[in-house]
Nucleic acid binder design. Structure first.
Length: 372
DNA sequence: CATGCGTGGTC
DNA sequence: TGACCAAGCAT
């Protein structure tokens, strides 16, 4: 009789749960022991946590809950308000889908979250991972979600050396073999906590791991090299010119970006397209929001996106009559600008005709703006 | 299945 | 300082 697969394939969940209970990590979306989790909070946190660190999410989560305490509050909110509240968190399509998802649950599901993976999976912004996570954590459905943390844990436990994404099918099988008969939500969160706090990408804390003795990679001394990352692609460098247009009363022009694509639906300082070739003055001027005299500001704004690096020159001009919305400088702080545009605002404040003493200190701070 | 999609922290 | 990283989704 061949050995049972579980005896060779899967580590025991009890030490993991014991470790989890001992760690007792308190997070604002997590139910207290013995209390049932709120699906709305679980869902909101899972969307925010997609490719985003816990530390970055916490203040956004608190603000969202304070402002929209229940699902239908969020469903009834204006999309622009949701986008503005999301500003700074990144991956803005999530905010659009969050709002659409709230509307779909209110409009098509009687205001209740579907309680199974397949139902959750049909909702905007909810993919395979998030559907499984919500099902397990909010509804105790016996599934193991597979996220980056759990992939790493499983790749190490089982010494899966194939590079991602080729290792995915095996990792999915390994996750399925772990599906618990009870405490599905705790198992899911325990696995993610283990990956986030112990089985970390760099400098994993193996002596503290409840599964150290089950870990093939640990036995082989290759923990630090797993999982094998996918080959990385090169990041191109793009250039643009942003147009800081000020009206006589001091208001500044912003425009809203198209709903689809980069920074979709977010406000921006109008600019040329962002391309790999640098812009000549003549070329850039054609993209300006108004036919005014433009004055290039010293220095540039540098920003790193996932798939390209951006260098933005900023031109300043005075005039009106352009399409868009006008904001006082005080309003800009709360306008819900994405981070790259907040950098533009900061750059203008530091470089636009300040008193001489302030200019010198601003130049030292940014490292830009010096004469060559 | 590869690609597009943000940001801030870390080493 | 730059590369890498973090609880993915949609197309």
């Amino acid at each position: 009789m061949p050995p049972r697969r579980s005896s060779i394939g899967s580590p025991d969940l009890d030490p993991l749960l014991a470790w989890y209970d001992g760690a007792r990590r308190v997070l604002p979306w997590r139910a207290a022991p013995g209390e049932s989790p709120d699906p709305y909070r679980v869902w909101l946190s899972e969307i925010m946590l997609q490719q985003t660190t816990v530390a970055a999410v916490i203040p956004f989560f608190e603000r969202f809950i304070r402002r929209w305490p229940r699902l239908d509050d969020l469903a009834n909110a204006n999309l622009d308000d949701v986008l503005a509240a999301w500003a700074g968190l990144g991956y803005y399509a999530r905010a659009r889908r969050l709002h659409a998802c709230a509307g779909a649950i209110i409009g098509e599901h009687g205001g209740r979250f579907p309680r199974d993976v397949a139902g959750l999976r049909t909702l905007p912004g909810i993919g395979a991972y998030t559907a499984a996570a919500i099902a397990a954590i909010a509804f105790e459905v016996p599934v193991v979600p597979l996220d980056g943390n759990i992939e790493r844990v499983l790749a190490r436990i089982h010494a899966v050396t194939a590079p991602l994404p080729r290792a995915k099918p095996e990792l999915r099988r390994r996750a399925a073999a772990l599906v618990p008969s009870h405490r599905a939500g705790d198992v899911a969160q325990a696995l993610m906590d283990l990956g986030a706090m112990v089985c970390t990408p760099r400098a994993p804390d193996c002596p503290c791991c409840p599964w150290q003795r089950n870990c093939r990679a640990n036995a082989l001394g290759i923990v630090g090299r797993l999982p094998t990352p996918a080959p990385k692609s090169i990041r191109p460098h793009r250039h643009g010119v942003a147009f800081w247009l000020e009206r006589a009363d001091g208001a500044v022009l912003l425009q809203r970006r198209p709903l689809e694509g980069l920074l979709g639906g977010m406000l921006e300082v109008p600019s040329t397209p962002w391309r790999e070739d640098r812009w000549t003055g003549t070329e850039a001027r054609r993209h300006g929001p108004a036919a005014v005299t433009w004055h290039p500001l010293p220095g540039t704004v540098e920003h790193m996106f996932t798939h390209f690096r951006l260098t933005l020159s900023v031109w300043s001009g005075v005039g009106g009559g352009a399409g868009g919305s006008w904001h006082t400088v005080e309003q800009l702080a709360d306008a819900g600008l994405p981070s790259v545009m907040r950098k533009v605002v900061r750059h203008v404040a530091a470089n636009k005709t300040p008193p001489r003493s302030e200019r010198r200190s601003a130049d030292r701070r940014t490292g830009h703006g010096r004469a060559p």
